[in-house]
Structure formats: structure tokens, C-alpha cells
């Protein structure tokens, strides 16, 4: 089944129309347009994807070790990370946080410059700031969530205690400058 076009996403802290179509593994390639595919399809269908007219983005599930994909990662325009919620032992809502490390490693270790997108049920206003600190710059949220409201997330915190994949200088480094 082809997933519907998401209408709008947040990219670089702005709401934009989303051109990407998330193609399921069993779906035929469309005539044109930008698509994303799973890592399995990326590997098994590589020739066809290379010949494809539009841009092709890569979807990774949260178990993928981003340092071990063996792909020329910087040739990819978009990497979509999955943020599922699991109901472990029926004890309720348990957001899976592996994507934060995946994004951090893509940015800082693999030098990935393209778009990193967070997608899945755990993507909501209150986690966007942490996600953006880890290097995620686009956000695809469930339609039930208020995308305009979510934009507020980026301005809630202006000081960071630790370095991550963003440009915020951690407090302990800022103190070095003030003490000098």
C-alpha cells in the first residue's frame, strides 16, 4: 500500500509542503516524483532506483546501525528515522529513543549534510527540541497534531548543558570564555 503524501512538514523550523512519497516495499515505482524507500529495498532494488528520475530518500528503522549500512550516505538527499512508541509489558506509552543516537551519529560521525527527518508516533511538539539538537532538521507529525503549535518547541530552551550535533555551545564551554 502506498502511504499517502504527507501534506505539510516542519523543515528547518518552517512549515513547508512535503514533496516526498514514502514508498512501501511492495509498491511499484511511480512515474516521477521524490520517493523514500526502506533500506531493504534500497539494497535489493538498487539498479532500478539508480535509474529512477526523481530523488530517492532512505528510510531507516530504529534498529539499524547507521555506521554499518555500507552506503555512500552523503549521496542521499533525505534520511528518514523512525520514532515508534511501544507498549512494553502493557505498562503504557514508551517512546523508543534510538533515533536520537542514529541522528547524532549521522551528523557528527558520518558527516551527513542532507535532510534528516523524524517520523512516527513519538514525533510531537515536546520532543522536537531534543531531536533538533541531535541533528534532525525535519519533522513529520501525525495529522492529529497541531503543526503550528509545534513550531514553538524550538524556542523553549536557549541554554544547553552538553554538546550534541547542533551548534549550541554547552554551558561548561561558555564558562571558559567568561572566566578568561
Amino acid at each position: 500500500m502506498t502511504l499517502p503524501l504527507s501534506k505539510r512538514v516542519i523543515r528547518d523550523r518552517q512549515i513547508v509542503e512535503d514533496p516526498w512519497l514514502h514508498l512501501a516495499d511492495e509498491d511499484a515505482l511511480p512515474e516521477s516524483g521524490d520517493i523514500t524507500v526502506s533500506l531493504e529495498r534500497w539494497q535489493s532494488d538498487n539498479d532500478a532506483l539508480k535509474a529512477y528520475a526523481g530523488h530517492v530518500g532512505l528510510r531507516l528503522d530504529s534498529d539499524t546501525d547507521v555506521e554499518e549500512t555500507g552506503l555512500a550516505i552523503n549521496d542521499i538527499p533525505l534520511i528518514v528515522l523512525d520514532f515508534p512508541i511501544i507498549d512494553t509489558n502493557k505498562r503504557g506509552y514508551h517512546p523508543v529513543g534510538k533515533g536520537y543516537s542514529q541522528a547524532y551519529l549521522l551528523r557528527t560521525r558520518l558527516g551527513f549534510k542532507g535532510e534528516i527527518r523524524a517520523r512516527g508516533p513519538a514525533v510531537m511538539r515536546d520532543v522536537l527540541f531534543y531531536m533538533s539538537r541531535c541533528g534532525i532538521n525535519s519533522f513529520e507529525m501525525d495529522e492529529s497534531k497541531d503543526i503550528n503549535d509545534a513550531l514553538k518547541a524550538f524556542n523553549e530552551m536557549t541554554v544547553a548543558y552538553q554538546p550534541s550535533a547542533d551548534s549550541m555551545q554547552p554551558a561548561f564551554m561558555r564558562r571558559r570564555n567568561t572566566a578568561a
Partner: peptide, 13 residues
């Protein structure tokens, strides 16, 4: 304390 507080990568361990 400071390193771990609001650590963006480790909020959903």
C-alpha cells in the same frame, strides 16, 4: 549532573 540534565540524546533510553 549538568552533562546528564536535558541530554537530548538520552531522554528516551
Amino acid at each position: 549532573r549538568q552533562w546528564s540534565m536535558f541530554h537530548p540524546e538520552f531522554a528516551y533510553l
